[in-house]
């Protein structure tokens, strides 16, 4: 039987928001199983395809949390287009490293980095309209949109991603047990 009745290949989109691309690197770590994956899915918007806008998809994988306005726009684009949205990695799941700034005042952060840090002379806070503005706090993606699945890990291993995705493609409720489930 097909993965989903009456359908051929599934369409997957991926994006990195406030993350480090480590989760995408982990996806590449499934090595030769990438071929197997590509037999079952097509990639839509993704750093791997360089497609810039997300079209209608079955699965969206989001790496990274939400730290600026652009992250919000991309996340909403994914939510609108993906039947299933999956938070991948520590930053998407709980804010991760970027969220370590959350106990600091954003204004003071910008001031310190661009104006008063040692060695800064004649500094200026960037204000080009091309640049997305940072939010006052960094958020995990489930605080912005509804999220269907979570794959924790910093990053989740290739094995974990493969287990999760193959469960999903085969129609099983995805499960991560020992030792695939880890938060670091």
């Amino acid at each position: 039987m097909d993965a989903l009745p009456g359908r051929g290949k599934l369409r997957i989109a991926t994006a990195t928001l406030a993350g480090c691309f480590g989760c995408h690197m982990s996806l590449l770590d499934i090595d030769e199983r990438l071929f197997e994956l590509l037999e079952r899915v097509d990639f839509d918007r993704s750093p791997l395809t360089d497609i810039k806008r997300c079209g209608p998809c079955d699965i969206g994988l989001i790496e990274g949390g939400i730290c600026n306005a652009e992250n919000v726009h991309v996340l909403r684009e994914f939510r609108r287009n993906c039947k299933l949205l999956i938070a991948v990695g520590a930053c998407a799941v709980n804010g991760g490293l970027p969220a370590q700034r959350n106990h600091l005042d954003l204004g003071l952060c910008l001031q310190e980095v661009y104006l008063t840090a040692p060695g800064v002379v004649g500094g200026q806070i960037p204000n080009d309209p091309e640049l997305p503005l940072p939010l006052d706090k960094v958020h995990p993606i489930h605080e912005i949109v509804r999220v269907d699945y979570f794959i924790p890990g910093c990053p989740p291993s290739g094995e974990a991603l493969w287990k999760f995705l193959s469960d999903l493609l085969d129609g099983r409720t995805p499960r991560l047990g020992h030792p695939l489930l880890h938060f670091d």
């Binding site: 306005a69 919000v72 005042d105 954003l106 204004g107 910008l110 001031q111 806070i125 960037p126 204000n127 309209p129 997305p132 503005l133 940072p134 939010l135 006052d136 706090k137």
Partner: peptide, 21 residues
């Protein structure tokens, strides 16, 4: 969300459309 950009708007002096939700 728009309020969450207020601090950045103030620090950058921006008020263009992309500086808002």
């Amino acid at each position: 969300l728009d309020q969450a950009l207020a601090a950045a708007r103030q620090m950058t002096g921006r008020d263009d459309a992309d500086a808002h939700f």
